Each structure stands twice: as C-alpha cells, then as structure tokens.
Computed example of a mutant assay.
Amino acid sequence: MSFALASFPTFTAGMVLSMSLIMAIGPQNAHVLRMGLQRQHVGLTVVVCMLSDMVLIGIGVLGLSQLGGLSDKLMGALVGAGALFLTVYGWKAFHRFLHPQVLNLDPATAEATSPPTTSRRQAVLAALAFSWLNPHAWLDTAVLIGTASLAYGASANVFGMGAATGSVVWFAALGLAAFWLGRRLNSLHLWRALDGAVALMMWGTAAFLLKSLF
C-alpha cells in the first residue's frame, strides 16, 4: 500500500503529460472525431489508437530509460530537449487559445448528404496509419514521454504506465463524446478551453523537467 501511495504522484504525472500531449488536436484525434461524428467503427478506431499509443509509449520509456544510465550529460541533454519541445508545443496551444478555430473534420464531403461507408478493414488501416505514420505521434509518445520519464529514474516504468493510462482515458472519452454529442462537440468555446488547458499542462511539465536538472 505504501509503495502504491508513493508511486501515485509519478503515475499521475505521466498521465497528465500524456493527456496534455494527446489533447492537442492533430491528425490522429481529428480522425477519431471524424469517425465518431460519422458513427462508423468508433470503438474499433479508438481501440487501435489506444494500443498503438501504448506500444509507442513503451518504446519511448523502456528504450530511453536505458540511455539515462549512460551519462549525466546525455540525460541532461535529453531532458532539456524535451522541456524545449514542450515549451514550443505549449506556445502553439496558447496561440490556438488566442485565435480559436473549429475543426473542418471532413472538407471533402462537407456538402454530401451522408458520409461514405467505411469497412472494418479500412477503419483499422486508417487508424494504424494515423498512429504509426504520423511523425507527431512518434514525437509525442516515443520521444517526449520517453524523455520525460528520465527525470523519474527508477520510477520511469510507473511514469510510463501513467502515460499509457492517460492515452486510454483520452481516446475513450473522445470517442464517446464525439459519438454522443455529435457536432455540438465541435464548438469554438470548447476548443479554446481545451487549448488553454493543454498550454498550462505542457508549460508546467516543462518547468518540472528543467527543475529536475538542478
């Protein structure tokens, strides 16, 4: 019980970082939203995105945690680079907060009366493509989360489990929200609040990473 309580802050930190990175709307999230709004294979799409993110997070945490023991300089460089990326990402989210825009989820079929039908195979392949062929997904999960885990030393695996949990929670919530709320989800006020929260969480995590260097 005492170990679980001691690990809770690290687990929570991983979860918060993961969600703050994923919440920044990109191709992967836009695809989940699109499938949810069209009500086509939402659950299947969400599961594929969840599993893909969990594997990418594992690659980052387990791989980069091995590098942490090579030298203090290497660890400092990686943590510093991660803090820089988070600061830049936070600024981008803050810029979207100042200049909010709703998503154009499907411009190719904006004038169509109904969306094209997607098969299960097409849904899986599309979700895999948005997860594995998207450089931002690799940067967010394998690189940034893996780098951030270095600051937690022996507890890096707990941090990684928290990050994976954050991914599961986010994609499940996003898929359900898109399915049940429909186009009311795609509102200016919602995206502005979301981007504001993302900016604060990213900057807060960047500050923690920089603090760990001293």
Rank of each mutant, 00 (worst) to 15 (best):
I145D: 02
Q101D: 11
A77W: 15
Q122R: 08
N186I: 08
S155V: 02
G182T: 08
G166S: 10
A6Y: 01
L200Q: 03
V48K: 02
F159M: 04
H31W: 15
H41M: 00
T147L: 14
N104T: 13
L185C: 04
A129V: 06
M54E: 01
M54A: 09
A154R: 11
L200D: 10
R184I: 06
G182D: 07
V55S: 05
V48H: 09
F159G: 02
W180N: 08
A163L: 00
P115T: 06
A137Q: 12
Y152F: 11
A77Y: 15
S52Q: 00
H189T: 11
A163D: 07
W180C: 08
T12K: 04
T113D: 14
A177N: 06
A137R: 04
V47C: 02
V169Y: 09
F214E: 08
L51F: 14
G162Y: 14
A207G: 01
P100A: 10
G90W: 14
S71N: 05
F94P: 00
S119Y: 06
A93M: 07
G204D: 03
L139T: 09
M23L: 14
L33T: 02
G26T: 00
T117G: 00
I59Y: 10
G90E: 12
V42E: 00
M35I: 10
A163V: 06
K73W: 15
L194R: 04
A126L: 13
A177P: 03
V143Y: 14
Q40Y: 13
L74R: 01
L67A: 04
H136N: 11
F8R: 11
W203V: 03
W132E: 01
V48F: 05
F3R: 14
L188I: 07
L150V: 00
F130S: 09
R192T: 06
A126N: 10
G146A: 05
N104Q: 13
Q40K: 12
R120Q: 11
H99Y: 15
Q40E: 01
G69H: 12
G153V: 04
N29V: 05
F85H: 09
D72A: 11
G160W: 07
R184M: 02
H41N: 09
I145F: 03
S212R: 15
V55I: 14
A163Q: 02
W191C: 00
G76W: 10
T117I: 14
L133Y: 13
R34C: 07
R96Q: 13
A207H: 09
M161P: 01
A137M: 13
A164N: 05
A193P: 04
G146V: 01
S2Q: 13
P100M: 12
V124T: 03
F97Y: 15
S114A: 10
V198T: 02
A129M: 10
T45C: 12
V16L: 11
G153P: 05
N186C: 08
F8H: 05
T113A: 15
A129G: 11
L188G: 00
